[in-house]
Amino acid sequence: MRVSIKKDVCIGAGQCALTAPDVFTQDDDGFSELLPGREDGGGSPLVREAGRACPVQAISVTEE
């Protein structure tokens, strides 16, 4: 699985970090970012739910 965040779309709602805190965090400006080494989702079952929770669909989860 590959997880990515469209930085130009993210509004900093933080739903991803609340839903899957072991994969997502927020930067100093409040925008979402992946934790280091979590580009593959880290095996978290909540990654897809975090993508669905994003109000602007800034998160994409794809199978490799």
Rank of each mutant, 00 (worst) to 15 (best):
C10I: 00
C10N: 09
C10H: 10
C10M: 15
I11C: 13
I11V: 06
G12S: 06
G12L: 09
G12D: 01
A13S: 10
A13G: 06
A13Y: 12
G14A: 09
G14N: 05
G14S: 07
G14R: 14
Q15A: 05
Q15W: 15
Q15N: 14
Q15L: 12
Q15G: 06
C16T: 00
C16H: 11
C16S: 05
C16V: 02
A17Y: 06
A17T: 04
A17F: 10
L18C: 07
L18Q: 11
T19H: 12
T19F: 09
T19N: 08
A20E: 03
A20K: 09
A20R: 10
P21T: 05
D22P: 00
D22A: 06
V23R: 15
V23L: 11
V23C: 13
T25Y: 13
Q26K: 13
Q26N: 07
Q26P: 04
Q26D: 03
D27R: 15
D27F: 14
D28G: 01
D28M: 13
D28A: 10
D29K: 15
D29L: 15
D29I: 04
D29A: 14
D29C: 09
G30M: 10
G30N: 10
G30A: 11
F31P: 01
S32T: 01
S32M: 08
E33M: 12
L34K: 15
L34S: 08
L34T: 00
L35W: 15
P36T: 01
P36A: 11
G37I: 00
G37M: 12
R38F: 11
R38W: 10
R38P: 03
E39F: 12
E39V: 01
E39P: 06
E39G: 01
E39L: 12
D40H: 13
D40I: 00
D40T: 00
D40K: 14
D40Q: 12
G41K: 10
G41R: 11
G41C: 07
G42N: 08
G42Q: 08
G43Q: 07
G43Y: 09
G43W: 06
G43M: 10
S44H: 06
S44P: 06
P45K: 14
P45R: 15
L46H: 14
L46R: 15
L46K: 15
V47H: 14
V47I: 00
V47F: 10
R48T: 00
R48G: 01
E49M: 08
E49P: 04
E49W: 07
E49Y: 09
A50P: 00
A50Y: 03
A50W: 05
A50D: 02
A50L: 07
A50H: 05
G51F: 03
G51I: 00
G51Y: 05
R52F: 01
R52L: 13
R52D: 05
A53Y: 05
C54I: 01
C54T: 02
C54V: 01
C54Q: 08
P55E: 04
P55S: 06
P55T: 02
P55H: 13
P55R: 14
P55A: 09
P55I: 00
V56S: 12
V56Q: 14
V56M: 14
